[in-house]
Every structure is written in structure tokens, then in C-alpha cells.
Design a protein around this nucleic acid. Structure first.
Lengths: 190, 190
DNA sequence: TTTTAAAGTGAATATATATTCACTTATCTT
DNA sequence: AAGATAAGTGAATATATATTCACTTTAAAA
């Protein structure tokens, strides 16, 4: 028999992301999403039990995807700084290319949609980032401050940078990206 | 005859902030707000034309207040770094003490509630911050990078730090605050 | 090709939420 | 104290939104 189409889920997700980035979580209805995705409202309920499940699934998917992409090409054998920059660039590129996800995740953080379970699973995916900072600290390259604080500082700054870049319409060229990296590195370096 | 009570507006604002921080903008209803404020739903409409106006007014009030507090005690005659740290501390303290506003502002940024006009007026209040960074650059103390970028970096990092602090339940003691300042300063300094 | 079951539909329904309004209460003025 | 006006109320109404379901379409299996 016919099978649920993965591409359709992607399409639903894309539509939801686009709308949330434009109108915020509070401004998006199931009707909006289905219209944007070019499907009937009822079809959303074929794929998801309801709005809550849709939002939670999208949240989880974004998180998994972004973490997975972040460590692409990272080789722990290589020296710390280039490895760190590699990951930093992966994160930045991902956020720039998936601006809508940045906004969506931010909006979700304080919404009643995201369940404790979803939140917890997302948090668990942070482990590799903590490990990275700890390595930098062991090698005396990174400040001996609470790793949670360092990560939050870095990722918070990056998020806001991505937003500013998006709104100002500036395209980050290589030199601009490098000077942005220097801001981060100078902050974190021991 | 009787006058609309300023304290009641404050009470409404406080209730809205508290609820938005807990449930997100999408999860808060006019009924919730009135219940939390201990008044009838109809009373909200004595003070505000509707939900939109309430949210916009709150947004503007938060923004004005935070900017005003930021420059408290700043004396441009004094050297840059202590003046900068003074402002930085003002901002951090404000955000820590008004955590709910941090969340509210973040949630609002991509909501359909905030009008272009409100947004513009908020943006105009940023001028003193830009001027501050420009001064630092003139004195060769701050990196010669786009001031918007520098500010975004700093404020984004601070926001996220405040959130992390809040969730982890850690109280920032003096030494912890200082090391956090060092992260910011090291990032920005020339 | 026919059969079968899942995928897809969208108008109808249920639910949640904003807003109104006829009325009550509080406060100021004379 | 009486009259006048604004503030406050909350049930009733209007509106927006999520969700359902009887039905149609599609595609795999027989």
C-alpha cells in the first residue's frame, strides 16, 4: 500500500519553519502551515497527531541535524585550534543557511509546546560540545571557566550575529567571517 | 474623576511578563493575564485597546527602561574601560534582575504583534550604545569591526549568559561576574 | 485488471480566545 | 450628601483555530 512520504514531512517542516520565522510561533496556525505546504489541513493530521507533536518533531529534527553537521570533518587527532575553527565554521554556516531554524528554536525555548522530554533529548546532544571545550582547557588553550558558560557565551554570540547579519542584509565574506571568529576566539582563549 | 492607576498598568505588565517567560508568547491569553493580575478581563480593555496594544506598550516600556538603566552612572569624562565596564555591569544586572523581560523581548522579536513603528522606536534607542563603541574604537581600545557586529556579539552573548545563569540556578558572585566580563572584553578589545 | 488499504481532502465541528457591553462600584466635585 | 463620571466587572458574543470524519484519490498487491 502507499507509504507516507518523507519528502512531504520535509515540506511540512519547511513550511512551518518559514512561517514561524516570519510571524513567530504565536502567529502560525495549522491552516497556515498546510496552505504554505500546498496540502489539505487534514493531511497534517495524517503525519502528526496534532500541532504539539508537529512542533516537537520539528524541534527534535532541527536539533539533531544541526549537531550532526557541526562535527562534520572534525578529527580529534589534529591540533585543537584548527579543529575548533572547523566546528565553529560548521555551526556558523549552518545557522546562516538555516536562519529559520535559529528563529524557530529560539521561539520554542519558552513555549508550552516543547515537552520536558524533547528538551532533555536536545540537551543530551550537547555532550560533544562540552567535550570539545574540555579538551581545549586540558591543553591550556581555553579559559578555565565553567564550560557551560563558555559554550553559552559563544553560541549566544553566534546566534545574535546570524540574526544581525540576516537583518542587515550583509553577506559575510571570508575576511568578515575570520574577524568574527577572532572575536570568539579572543573571548575564549586562555 | 477617578484616574487610571499607573500601578495597575505595572501590575498588568508584570503579569504578562511572568506568564510569557513561563509559557511563551503563544501560550498566554488575555484571560491568563487578567487572572494573574487579579483583575477582570474587561479591565484590560480599559487600559489597552486590545492584546496587540498591550504587547506593544510592554515591549516599548521594557526597552526604554533597560536603555535608561544601562547608562546610569556613566561619565564620558572618565577613561573608557571603567566606563564601559560600568555600562556592561548595568546591563548584566538589569538582565539578571529582569529575566522575564529578556525572554519577553526575545519572543516578541519575531512575533506579528510588534509593529514596524514599535520596532523602529526601539532601534532608535540603541544610538548611545553605538556611540560608546565608536568612542572605544577612536581610542584604539576596541577592534575596528562594524560596531553593529560588536554590539550584537556582546549583547547576544550576555543574553544567553543570563539565560544559562537562570536555568542552572547559579548565582553570579563578584568573581564569576568579573571572569564573564573578561570574556566580553577580550573579545572586543583591539 | 481488480482489489485493498493507506494517503489525501476540506467542509463541518469542537474548542479556545479575544473582545464587547450592560451593569456595578468607586471616587471626585459641588 | 447628591450627582456626575470614570474605573471595574464578567457573562455573553464574536472570532479564530485546532481537530475530526465521511469521502475521494492513489498506488501497491493479488
Amino acid at each position: 500500500m502507499k507509504l507516507k512520504d518523507d519528502r512531504k514531512v520535509t515540506q511540512i517542516f519547511q513550511s512551518a519553519l518559514k512561517l514561524v520565522a516570519k510571524k513567530g510561533l504565536s502567529g502560525v496556525t495549522m491552516g497556515d502551515i498546510s496552505r504554505e505546504a500546498g496540502i489539505a489541513t487534514g493531511t497534517l493530521y495524517v503525519y502528526f497527531k496534532g500541532k504539539d507533536e508537529l512542533i516537537n518533531a520539528l524541534f527534535a529534527a532541527c536539533r539533531e541535524n544541526s549537531v550532526q553537521v557541526s562535527f562534520k570533518g572534525y578529527n580529534p587527532q589534529l591540533p585543537f585550534k584548527p579543529g575548533f575553527k572547523n566546528i565553529w565554521l560548521n555551526i556558523l554556516r549552518y545557522k546562516l543557511q538555516h536562519f529559520e531554524e535559529v528563529i524557530f528554536m529560539e521561539q520554542c525555548y519558552h513555549s508550552p509546546f516543547i515537552t520536558a522530554d524533547t528538551r532533555e533529548k536536545a540537551q543530551q546532544l550537547s555532550a560533544p560540545f562540552y567535550a570539545l571545550m574540555e579538551r581545549g582547557q586540558k591543553e591550556q588553550l581555553i579559559k578555565q571557566t565553567d564550560t557551560g558558560l563558555l559554550l553559552t557565551f559563544m553560541l549566544g554570540a553566534m546566534n545574535e550575529l546570524v540574526k544581525q547579519t540576516h537583518y542587515s542584509g550583509i553577506t559575510l565574506n571570508r575576511s568578515r567571517i575570520n574577524s568574527t571568529f577572532d572575536l570568539c576566539w579572543d573571548a575564549l582563549k586562555a
